[in-house]
Structures are given as C-alpha cells and as structure tokens.
Amino acid sequence: MKGYRKYFGKKILWFVITLVVAVILNFTLPRLMPADPVAAITGKMAQGMTDASAVQEIYKRYEEEFGTNKPMLEQFFIFVKNMLKGDLGTSFSQYPRKVSDIISSAIWWTVALQLPAIIVGWLLGNLLGALAAYIRKGFDKVLLPLSLFLSNVPAFGMAVVMLVLFAVKFKIAPIGGGYAFDMIPNFSWNFVKSVITHYQLPFWSIVMVSIGGQAIGMRSMSIYELNADYVKYARFLGIKDRKIVGYVFRNAMLPQVTGLALSIGTMIGGALVAEIIFSYPGLGSTMYTAVTAADYPLISATTLIITFMVLIVTLLLDIVYGFIDPRVKAAQFD
C-alpha cells in the first residue's frame, strides 16, 4: 500500500504543479507580447469613431474591465481570485454574456463527444492491433498499411470526408450542429433523438482517426510481448495458446493506457478542430468563434479549461494505470 500511496501522491503533486504552471502561462503569455491587447480591442470596438475622447473612454473602460492599469502581480492575483470563484470575465463578442456561462454550456458537448469517442477509438484500435499481431500473415499485411494510412489522415480531414460522404452525398446524417437548428434544448424525446443523429458523424470521425494510431501501437506492443520469455516458458509448461494470448494482450494493453495519457492532449487538439467542421456546439467551435471575433477573454478561458480537462484525464489515467499494472507498484519500491 505504501508503494501506491507514494505513486498517487507523486502523481497528484505533479497535477497541482502543472496546473499552477498552466495558469501562470495562460496569464502571462498574452501579456508578454509587445502589442497592447486593450488597445487592439479598443481599436476594433471604436472602428469608425472619430471622437478621440470617446475612443479614450472606451479604452479606459476596457482597461478597467481587464485591470490592465494595475501592476502585473496584482493583476495575477485578481485573475486567480476570480478564477477560483468561477469568474472568467466577460465575453466581447457575446457581450454582456459571462465567459464562464458560455463555457459551461459548451463544455458538456465536448466532454460528451470526445470522451466516449476516444475511449471507443482506443478499444477498437487495441482490438485491431492485437488481431493484427496475432494473425500476422495476410491480415496484418492489409490492416497495417490501412491503419498507418488512416492514422495519418488529420482529424479535420476525416471530419470533412465523412461530412461530405454521409451528410452531403448520401444525406443520411445532418450536416452539422449539435441538434436540429429549429429546436430549443429541452428534455423531450424529439430533442434527444436530434442530438443523437447529430452526434454520429463527429463521434465516428474522431473514432476513425484514433483507431489507426492505437492499432499500430498495440500491434508493436503485442509483437514485443509475444516474443517475451514468459510466453515461451508458459508454452513449455503446457499452457494453452489461447490462455497465453490472453496474458500477452493484457500486458500489451496496459502500457497503452499510459500511451493514451501521453497522447490525450494531441488527440483532443485534433478533435477540437474536427468540432469546427461539424459546427458542433463544443469548446472547439467556441474557440473558433472566439478567435474570429478576437474575443480575448473567451480564448483565454477556453485554453485554460482545455488544459484543465487534459490534466484531469491524464491524472485519472495515471491513477487507473497504477491500480491495474502491478509493475508500477514494484517500480515504486526501487
């Protein structure tokens, strides 16, 4: 148990440290740049205005709103204090909506889309990879190049191809959005049905993209494990091949959990961009609208929330891994 406590303690400590660093970066990076964001925003807002004092007024107002007229350190503490209260500022493009408000409605779409999609992609990919490693001849020859090719299709590319094929060409799926555009979110059966039909394409496009990479990783892990000494030994003890294959796939799959933890950031990045293609009402699309509208508070909040999500998922995966792989416990005794 001591080993576990040490392991989890270490993981949680890392989580806190990275979170702090992420918050600091999120705060400082935009402020490090030579350009004055308030001036830029004022410029946008005051387009066409000729009255210098009115422009000055707008500038002052935004300076107040951001607190950029205060010293850097004080700004940071205000930022952290507000963040802890759940206040992430006010959106520019959707004024006077609160950023936290916009994000809390988008985040569930993203979580509900990406989490299942990544898990299903991971499972299917591992299954295919294991099959490829086990069957090898022929099957492997077709599946491997195909997986390699698939894993190299960018997430947004897969999204566009699937959209064009299934929504535009065959018209068996809606063209985008999270639900039919003429509906208002509620808990009626019709709405749920609409959500489910709109869910299919984004979901499967993310699944398709993650399958390839996972399958390749699983295949080489499995081949590595199939050649391990314990496989030979188990065979010479008369244990059935089917049982040994069970050992191998379990052992090959466990490191894949860590692999998922390491790649989750990249995967979510790709999937967020795929959201834009489907105009899915999640964080990806929010970020896109924020970027196009130069809505600085919203961009900052989305990146922060995405970082937070990635950190949480990574931490959870690490904890799960610690429980399911005894090798971790042993490593902590060293």
Binding site: A228, D229, Y230, K232, Y233, A234, F236, L237, G238, Y247, R250, N251, L254, D325, P326, R327
Partner: peptide
Amino acid sequence: GTEIAYIPQAAMNALNPT
C-alpha cells in the same frame, strides 16, 4: 510439465509480470 519440464535461460523474465 508432466513428463518433461523446462527451466528457461532468463528466469528473470520467465514469469508473466502482471
């Protein structure tokens, strides 16, 4: 295992680690 049994060269890795 019953008539003839084997002890491998690298017993370090002969046991399934998990």
